[in-house]
Design a protein around this nucleic acid. Sequence first.
RNA 1: GACCCUGUAGCUCAGUAGGAUAGAGCACCUGCCUCCUAAGCAGGGGGUCGACGGUUCGAAUCCGCCCAGGGUCGCCA
Length: 675
Amino acid sequence: MSEKPVDKIAGIINDHIFENYKKNITIIWNKPPSSNLGDVSFPLFSIAKNVGEKIEVIGQSLKSKIENQEVVEKVELKGGFLNIFFNRNYFSDKVLKNVVKAEKYGKSTVESSKRVIIEHTSSNPNGPLHIGNFRGSVVGDLLARLYKMSGAAVNVRYYVNDLGRQIAPVVIGYKLLKKNNIAPDTKIDLWIGKIYATMNTLLDIQEIKKEIQTKTGKYHINDDLKYKIEPNDKEEIENLLMSSELDEKTKEILLKRTKKLFSVQKALSSKIPDLFNLLRKLTEKEVSDLSSLTQEYIEEYLKGENKQIVSEYRELTEKALSGHIETLSRFNIFHDDFDRESDIAWSGEVKEILQKLETKQWLRHDGRARLLKNDEIATALRYKEKYNIKHEIPDLILVNSEGIPLYPCRDIAYHLHKLEKFNANLCINVIGKQQQSLQLGVRLALYALNRSDIADKIIHFDYEYVTLVGRKMAGRELEYVTPDELYSLAKEEVYKFLNERDYSEEEKSNIANIVSAASVKISIAKIDPNKAVMFDVKKATDLNENSGPFLLYSFTRAKNIIIKAKEESIPIEDIINNCETVEISIVKDEEWNLIKLIEELPMIYKRAINTKRPDTIVNFSFELCKAFNKFYDNCPVISENDEKVRKTRILIVQSTIKALESLFEVLGIDSLEKM
RNA sequence: GACCCUGUAGCUCAGUAGGAUAGAGCACCUGCCUCCUAAGCAGGGGGUCGACGGUUCGAAUCCGCCCAGGGUCGCCA
């Protein structure tokens, strides 16, 4: 349809008001609460008030203007609303034939002027993806697909934070295992996650023991127990601290840390006893001082000159990343480019940036540390004014007191060339909400560097984190749920259905893969990213609770009608290819409601992009499927005797298929003909 | 203390450029497979939209003030 009927009517109202009252007002419309009130309605209150006319009078004159439109069946004036009923056959004729003939329904050029970078996932390469950062993957993927559907050029990037301090012990642990010919007993990133938890715990134990020794001067560390807290260790430390001369606050902190470490150690030695003990023994045997070795690794990798260490780091992070990629691909989530934080650190850009900032009045020195006075930048360069920020903005720490540049420096450099490389006019960073102030800091730093042009193109698309029912996620204690886990749990559920069906093993496996992926992905995608979610594994893998399988099932039902119709020798291809000649005949509400929804799809895409709410796509898909299932139950296609009605229904089914294919593409889920 | 987000049915969540009787799914009851796959459909119960004020023809939606939960706030990312 070249112009939406609603817009056309709104236009008529607008013209009428302008002609008679010389006023230009925005016309709003909405869906009546019940379909027997009409298909669309225009509230007249504000219009009447605006032009100083009685609602009845303006309503009547608009009614007579509108009711002679071809697409309009009748107009009713009720309770201050102008209610429009469309001519169902006329409206459906336009919609169905347009959709059926479309190469890809919903594909548009609305955003074709945009070149969009979407950065998402960007999880630290020291363990598996868990549902927290996977939420970002899902949201980012939907956004990317949405922009593509709307004609934008899209570049999806993954920022690999391989410089994190906590990665060094993992590299060391991984090397120890490799040297001793211990092979992974599970998916590589999961295995790395275990090493991460273990090595960082060992490191912490060593460090706290050292600290207590220095501070109290009395504690003696048994060399064999450098990396372990025994129950009597714990008692000794507690007694020592209580009787020591240290101030209360220090005592309290040290005590708390000791307790925490003891419980983490306990958790690990019960969850992964073999690996934990093995790594502890290897560390004791082969690493004299884990703490200083870690420091050496961190420093060397930041410099990037020690080939040996660089290659060890690269091997480990590459492996972890390969696990992420494998996981993501199960859910049809792909990246175009991977950028390593270390590459940026080695490039010299950070130095340049710091030098440039050094010349500005906003850089504050504090010993060797460098801080950016963000509040002053935001005021002086009118950032506050532009984005309506009224509160104070905290400083951004660029360099720590040891003179080491921190993460934001690299992120500033990254943004500078990321946008230029792709010639992007929009950059959406899908990053957890915790980084809100950090991300703002980076944009302000760009302002300070006279690159407000770049900063203004960056959007921090923040999403809330995921918590587990009854517990917190904690990588260090191996307390997390992975998308891989959900995927296999969902698969078990799917097989419960499939085992009652007479499909081949190959078919079953294919169906199980697609349904499980959709189930997990949709269960995450359907929630507003702004909402912190309490994640319940049982619910997430309950197929009745989730809309993913429901969407897929609706599609198979639609497809099946077409397949069956062909078997019954109904000339489907012919009807579809020559749909112009079909005389549309709508006889049931279920047909009509479905068609109205199909017509809305392009608008839904537009709105999802404008409001940056990819979750609305899921809700719309669900509504559409619901309407289709009602149609399915009430409107037989193949056995329908009236030829016009039958052909109309075939076009309705085909349009539904087209709409769902489009939606599935945006959601990144595969479709099935059988399930 | 400052800032951001959230609070809607027993549970999980939609609905916010102000609109008519606040909606789904799950769970709980009741029906429907001689009929295109029942992973479906039909029906039922269940709500002071966190509280109180304000703005107006009209508020879950906008404003103010509270309350509760989560997050961030100088060297981790």
